[in-house]
């Protein structure tokens, strides 16, 4: 690559990106989420999905699940940068362990009549989506599964009158008896 005249070296390497799911155990205190998100925006990392909730109230622990993409070197950086934050207890790369289950929940609103309504219900049954709200011209379906399954379901609903989608983002947990 011909270097432009610059005070900085411009890198020309393009390692392929990988998608990783990280589980981050943090002290639940004011500003902790802002710290984590600020790290991603400040250092130019991607967030594909983000899920946060307190998981152990007595110990003030929250669990943040982040789906991110980057080269292997960037993914390693992200983990190290997260791990060195003061209120972060632990960072586990759920993708690297290869022994994790990922789920998200989506609520999908579909509006339609006649054949479209019947088809929507039939597909919901096939995907094990539940009807949690219904009117004479609409349904709200609740569906859980991995990201691909939910994407697929949403794609199928599109021609049947998809109105809107609300998704929780990914939550992940390891298989087997051990905790993180």
């Amino acid at each position: 690559m011909n270097q432009p005249a610059s005070a900085y070296f411009i890198e020309d390497r393009h390692d392929p990106n990988e998608t990783h799911t990280l589980a981050v155990l943090v002290q639940n205190e004011p500003g902790v989420l802002a710290r984590v998100i600020g790290l991603f925006s400040g250092r130019g990392y991607n967030i594909e999905s983000l899920t946060v909730s307190e998981t152990e109230a007595q110990k003030h622990l929250s669990r943040i699940t982040i789906v991110t993409t980057g080269t292997p070197m960037v993914i390693a950086q992200i983990k190290n940068q997260l791990d060195r934050m003061i209120p972060v207890y632990q960072v586990v790369d759920m993708t690297q362990t290869k022994r994790s289950i990922e789920r998200e929940l989506a609520m999908v609103k579909v509006r339609g009549q006649g054949e479209h309504r019947v088809e929507a219900l039939r597909l919901a049954d096939a995907f094990r989506a539940r009807v949690i709200d219904a009117t004479t011209e609409s349904f709200v379906f609740e569906i859980t599964g991995n990201t691909d399954k939910i994407n697929q379901y949403i794609d199928l609903m599109r021609p049947l009158g998809l109105v809107e989608v609300s998704r929780t983002g990914v939550a992940a947990i390891g298989r087997g008896p051990e905790g993180m």
Partner: peptide, 9 residues
């Protein structure tokens, strides 16, 4: 030594 384009980073 400094030959190159005009772009600045």
């Amino acid at each position: 030594a400094f030959a190159g384009g005009k772009a600045l980073v």
